[in-house]
Design a protein around this nucleic acid. Structure first.
Lengths: 224, 224
DNA sequence: TGTATCGAATACATTCGTGTATTGGATACG
DNA sequence: CGTATCCAATACACGAATGTATTCGATACA
């Protein structure tokens, strides 16, 4: 028996391959957002990316796999952004606020909304992601995983942020965070639903600023 | 010139026709929930209803029309249920609560969750409805319309409900209502996402009971 | 420069859904 | 009864998307 040359796949994918995958994900991001994951044909995605279907089939096993790769990537981007956020939010907040009024809280909210510019496309894709998750336990597992990673990190940030203005949560901070993110998301939805003519990001922030401070105040108390 | 027999369509559709439409909507409800509006073929819907595609094409112009007819119907059902809710919620609540603590508020929350048993199917279809609305201004218009009708009525109910336990909202009651419904919906999503093995409705209520009272209290104050 | 390999393009067969045009059977009505 | 009407069933033609099997070209490497 001779030593058999094992078909080991290269530890690191060729640069070319990786680039193609990225371009396909970029295209998929747009097309999925515009047409929906199911409605989007593989051809539409590859065409948008400047390829033919051949490129897709030699890089992904299925549309599902492409979708999850995309979700994974985008979630990573947002996790990273959150990490950077630490450096952005706190230096300025640290200047202690005088009165613990609603304005101080509104300021926090505003920072966080700026930190997560929930670009239209991601918001739509994520919304579909959740809908798909409601239908399929497998999808749900991934959805929950992503959401948990984000919210866990965000919870630490938020806890610290309210602390710097002299407040603390009256309920579990992860709970509180999930309430906040849910409402922030809703604010973004409302902005998108308002139509394509409005400045979505600005409106989303305005919506959030109108709703969230009251809630945040309701969920916190002055630290003794 | 003789009087021409005008081809006027019967003011009231034939009973047979109406029945077929209802059965198609019933089937569509299930199939849309299970597979998604786009993934669901017309054939799948008609087959589930015990028809062939001929029945569909002689009753609806498109899948979209069927979807909107379904949404209209289901929204009506839920509006009616809300109306009845008045008689269900208040008689018992009216017995004034002694202490304005979180328990009294939790009781209100529980009543409202029972009032809107957001059955799994409707919850999923509504979630997809919203996702579709994010993509299309036409769909958005309908979505907002439905949502507004529900929330407006609900706001009146809620305002009265918190009043009966000696509270009043510190922000606009419609605003507050939308916060509550958003979080209640989230509680239901979480329950569905938990998997098919759990009692969705019970878990949804438990989730809501854990989250909503704190928020509701945060948005109200004792009436002077 | 020649050759091997990798990855995208292409060609093809097949499946699936759609919509229309027509038929057939039931019900209402004279 | 017989006939007209209505509505769902059926048959058919078409287009769209899929996945595979193969080819072609570029890059890497001897």
């Amino acid at each position: 028996m001779t030593t058999q040359p094992v078909d080991v796949e290269p530890a690191v994918e060729s640069a070319r391959r990786q680039k193609t995958r990225e371009r396909l994900m970029d295209a998929a991001f747009d097309v999925f957002a515009e047409q929906g994951v199911h409605a989007a044909s593989i051809e539409a995605v590859t065409e948008r990316a400047g390829f033919t279907r051949g490129a897709f089939y030699s890089n992904f096993a299925s549309k599902e796999e492409l979708f999850f790769a995309l979700a994974e990537r985008e979630n990573g981007v947002r996790l990273d952004r959150l990490q950077e956020g630490i450096d952005i939010i706190f230096p300025t907040l640290a200047t202690p606020v005088e009165s613990l009024d609603i304005e101080a809280v509104a300021e926090i909210v505003d920072r966080f909304m700026l930190l997560q510019p929930n670009d239209r496309h991601w918001c739509i894709v994520e919304s579909e992601f959740r809908t798909l998750a409601l239908r399929s336990p497998e999808v749900a597992a991934r959805y929950i995983d992503y959401e948990t990673r984000i919210d866990t990190r965000l919870a630490r940030l938020l806890e610290e942020a309210v602390g710097t203005v002299g407040l603390r949560f009256t309920i579990d901070s992860l709970q509180a965070t999930r309430i906040i993110t849910t409402l922030a998301q809703q604010a973004t939805y409302d902005a998108i639903l308002a139509g394509p003519d409005v400045a979505t990001d600005d409106l989303a922030r305005a919506n959030a600023r109108r709703v969230l401070p009251a809630v945040l105040l309701g969920l916190t108390e002055p630290v003794a």
